[in-house]
């Protein structure tokens, strides 16, 4: 799999740090899209309170990332810089879930799109196709 992310962070002072922030953001976004879910029972008790139950992305859930940027100086601060910490986490869930909705043919896909959720979405596509025939 190939993952490419491009953004505009204004003037980049330390590219190594900025790229690192984007890598981490993408991983969090993928986690949100596919794995990480805060689940409460009907009494309001959090049942995903430890890593036994809450699925953080592992290294083998992710590819390496190809990160690049364009530079448009930010006019509202003297350094011309923009935020980069959350950038990856904004686009990543959208990209992943768009890929899934595109594949299944409808938009009823919850996050996290666990294997069970994707299976249910595929079943729904089959039903929709049948109803249309």
């Amino acid at each position: 799999m190939k993952w490419t992310a491009i953004d505009d962070f204004g003037i980049v002072i330390n590219p190594m740090i900025v790229e690192g922030q984007v890598h981490g953001g993408i991983a969090q976004g993928v986690g949100q899209a596919l794995l990480e879910g805060a689940v409460y029972d009907k009494h309001g008790q959090l049942v995903t309170g430890s890593y036994m139950d809450y699925c953080m992305p592992r290294a083998d859930n992710l590819p390496s990332f190809n990160v690049d940027y364009v530079v448009t100086k930010c006019p509202s601060n003297p350094l011309g810089i923009k935020g980069c910490g959350e950038a990856g986490a904004i686009a990543a869930p959208v990209a992943v879930v768009n890929a899934i909705t595109n594949a299944v043919g409808h938009e009823d896909v919850p996050m996290p799109a666990t294997p069970q959720a994707v299976w249910a979405a595929v079943q729904k596509s089959a039903k929709l196709r049948k109803a249309a025939e």
Binding site: G24, G25, A27, Q28, R58, A59, D60, L62, S64, G88
Partner: peptide, 24 residues
């Protein structure tokens, strides 16, 4: 290779780096 490193890191979680630079 990258694949081996990623598989072997299964038991180590990182919240910040997205693992990219750890693997490197």
């Amino acid at each position: 290779d990258e694949h081996t490193i990623r598989e072997e890191l299964e038991g180590n979680l990182c919240r910040c780096t997205g693992y990219h630079n750890i693997v490197k």
